[in-house]
C-alpha cells in the first residue's frame, strides 16, 4: 500500500508535513467531534468496569447495578445518572488522560468527559463532585463550552452547569 506522491500538490504535501510537525494539533475539530460522539454512545460498562475510585469509595456497587450494563455515557449525562456513576466517569476521564499511549483518550476528549460529568452532577443533583475551586471549575466549564466540536446537548449541559455553579456560589 505504498503512497505515490508524484502528483501531489505542494499544498497537499504541506498538510502531510503538518501531521508530523504539530504534535499539539493531532486532531481536527471534526475528528474530536466524531470521537466525542463515539464515546457518548459507548456503553458505560466497557470503559468504567474496574476504574479505581480516586476520591472516596462512595461509588462502590454502582457497577453491579444491572441497569449499568445498558447505560451509555450520553444517558447518564443528558437524562439521569446517579452521583456515584458520574463520579466514576469523572475519575475514568481523569485516569484516561494519563494512560499508556495506545489506551489513553486524547486529552481534549478526556477533559470534555471530565467536565460533562461534573456539570451533570451540578445540574441533576446540585452536587459538586470535584475539589476544584469555583473559579477553576468555572474556567474549565467555559473552556469545554467553547469547544466547537462538542455536540449541542453537551454545550447545553456545560452552560447549565456553569449557571448552577453561579447560583450555588451566590447562595453561599
Amino acid at each position: 500500500m505504498s503512497i505515490n506522491l508524484i502528483d501531489a500538490e505542494p499544498g497537499q504535501l504541506a498538510q502531510i508535513l503538518d501531521v508530523g510537525s504539530k504534535p499539539s494539533q493531532m486532531w481536527t475539530d471534526s475528528e474530536l467531534g466524531l470521537m466525542l460522539n463515539h464515546q457518548l454512545d459507548a456503553p458505560l460498562f466497557m470503559d468504567l468496569s474496574g476504574v479505581p475510585r480516586m476520591e472516596g469509595a462512595s461509588s462502590a456497587g454502582a457497577c453491579d447495578d444491572p441497569s449499568f450494563r445498558t447505560l451509555r455515557f450520553a444517558d447518564v449525562f443528558f437524562d439521569q445518572g446517579s452521583v456515584e456513576v458520574l463520579r466514576l466517569i469523572k475519575d475514568y476521564a481523569k485516569g484516561s488522560m494519563i494512560g499508556k499511549a495506545d489506551e489513553a483518550l486524547p486529552e481534549s476528549i478526556g477533559l470534555m468527559l471530565y467536565y460533562l460529568a461534573i456539570a451533570a452532577a451540578l445540574v441533576q443533583h446540585g452536587v459538586k463532585i470535584t475539589q476544584l475551586s469555583d473559579k477553576e471549575l468555572a474556567e474549565g466549564l467555559t473552556w469545554a463550552s467553547d469547544q466547537s466540536w462538542a455536540s449541542k446537548p453537551a454545550h447545553a449541559l456545560l452552560e447549565n452547569g456553569r449557571r448552577s455553579l453561579d447560583r450555588e456560589a451566590r447562595a453561599r
Binding site: V19, M26, E31, E103, P106
Partner: peptide, 22 residues
C-alpha cells in the same frame, strides 16, 4: 475493541510519522 482504541492507534501512528520525519 473500541473506536477509542482506533483513535489512539491514529495518535500513535501520527507520533511515529513525526518521529521519522525528524
Amino acid at each position: 475493541p473500541t473506536p477509542s482504541t482506533a483513535s489512539n492507534a491514529l495518535v500513535t501512528s501520527k507520533r511515529m510519522f513525526a518521529r521519522l520525519l525528524r
